[in-house]
């Protein structure tokens, strides 16, 4: 594990370059460019908020902000893991020709998504100000669960990218799984509407914890509970450990399967 972080530091420039490639390509030739990162979640939030505050009413204080937090977290997970899963296959030609540290590709994809998330933060602050939510120093502690989540996504990305090399079905299977996950995670509904007997499903979902901690900072303007953060950290460490071991074990055979 230690060597992983050392190597990541050593190759930081390459990661920066790969990340900036992702972002440049995403917005090349669009007039509003990076602004889309900000506008996209905002528009989706407005649409969803409109639907849910008229059709189905949930008893949630400051629903737009609640919704936006959920969306930001879920989009980050969705985007980073999906792209990381494909990263090895997509760079197959390169991996077959040159020796490159292979995990840099899933890593840079996850970091790209995280940078994307940072671009959406102004939208979040805008909604905080507009809706008059509590805005304190503690609001900024959302960085802590976000950091753990970055590690978690990296771990999941490493696992998925390994699996996807051997089984291309993963790509399709995972998309189905993601849509299931989007309903199993309290993005647009409050946790309280989940019936008692199903609450285990929530507790088995890592995203639930990251989302909850994130909301405690942003929506409630307080430092997330310590034991919640402990759970977030443990999940992150365990996932990245498994991902790293799995990836390390199989990476030498990747070139034979892509």
């Amino acid at each position: 594990m230690d060597s992983l972080f050392k190597e990541l530091y050593k190759y930081r420039y390459l990661i920066v370059e790969l990340v900036s490639r992702d972002i440049k390509k995403k917005y090349r030739r669009s007039i509003l460019g990076v602004l889309w990162s900000l506008l996209n979640p905002l528009f989706i939030m407005i649409i969803t908020a409109m639907i849910f505050s008229h059709l189905f009413r949930f008893d949630i204080e400051n629903y737009p902000l609640y919704l936006l937090c959920g969306q930001i977290i879920f989009t980050f997970y969705n985007e980073s893991t999906r792209f990381a899963m494909l990263s090895i296959i997509e760079n197959g030609i390169l991996l077959k020709k040159v020796y490159v540290l292979k995990y840099l590709f899933p890593t840079s994809r996850v970091v790209s998504s995280c940078v994307n998330l940072l671009f959406t933060l102004p939208a979040l602050f805008l909604i905080i100000v507009v809706t008059g939510a509590k805005f304190t120093f503690a609001t900024f502690t959302f960085i802590i669960p976000l950091f753990f989540m970055l590690m978690f996504c990296l771990g999941v990305g490493l696992i998925l990218s390994t699996l996807a090399v051997y089984f291309r079905d993963m790509v399709h299977l995972y998309n189905v799984f993601l849509s299931l996950l989007s309903y199993a995670t309290p993005i647009f509904y409050p946790e309280s509407i989940v019936p008692e007997q199903y609450s285990l499903i929530l507790k088995l979902n890592p995203l639930y914890f990251y989302m909850k901690a994130f909301r405690q900072s942003v929506c409630e303007g307080r430092i997330p509970e310590a034991d919640l953060l402990m759970i977030c950290a443990s999940i992150a460490v365990v996932t990245i450990f498994i991902g790293w071991r799995l990836f390390k074990r199989y990476q030498n055979n990747f070139v034979l399967y892509i």
């Binding site: 490639r21 440049k24 390509k25 090349r28 030609i93 390169l94 020709k97 040159v98 490159v100």
Partner: peptide
């Protein structure tokens, strides 16, 4: 081995 293997055509 193969020049330009790592090029990204969009860049």
């Amino acid at each position: 081995i193969e020049v330009g293997a790592g090029f990204d055509p969009e860049l």
